[in-house]
Amino acid sequence: MAVFNLNINGEQHQVDVDPDMPMLWVLRDSLNLVGTKYGCGIAQCGACTIHLGDVAMRSCMLPVSQVGNQAITTIEGLSEKGDHPVQQAWLEHDVAQCGYCQSGQIMNAAALLKSNPKPSDPEIEAAMNGNICRCGTYVRIKEAIKSVTSNT
């Protein structure tokens, strides 16, 4: 066990955990931030996507010891009032079915749009391909992302 000081959603958190513990479990089990989801544990489904700085990361394979003082953003901290353009687009396009994968989809889409504000269809597909939606809401996810690009 070791003590880590983490900057999560703009707040400082101190946790005393195993250095190899993935951020996913630090968030979910130590800090009760359960918006970040567990789906596969091997970075294949994207449900656990968070931002490390501005970059989308799979938190299930990111050991807490590698985070250092980089800012972490989770779905809970993407916007203060739940009104990030991507969140609004998700509501406008009524994307969710079961909804379990959607916080990961939203975090991945938000990071994509930050680095590439007007992605083409193939760029959207390439960037989102690591995020599985078992309910099959892909058509709406793409529409939602494209609506953000056309609104900005």
């Binding site: 931030l33 359960v34 918006g35 970040t36 989801k37 989770t74 779905i75 809970e76 993407l78 739940g82 969140q87 998700w90 509501l91 009524d94 969710a96 909804g99 379990y100 959607q102 916080s103 939203i106």
Partner: peptide, 15 residues
């Protein structure tokens, strides 16, 4: 729209 949409897109503990 899905009535739980706002909770789903903000990561509220529903599951």
């Amino acid at each position: 729209k899905n009535v739980e949409g706002p909770k789903l897109v903000t990561g509220k503990p529903l599951f």
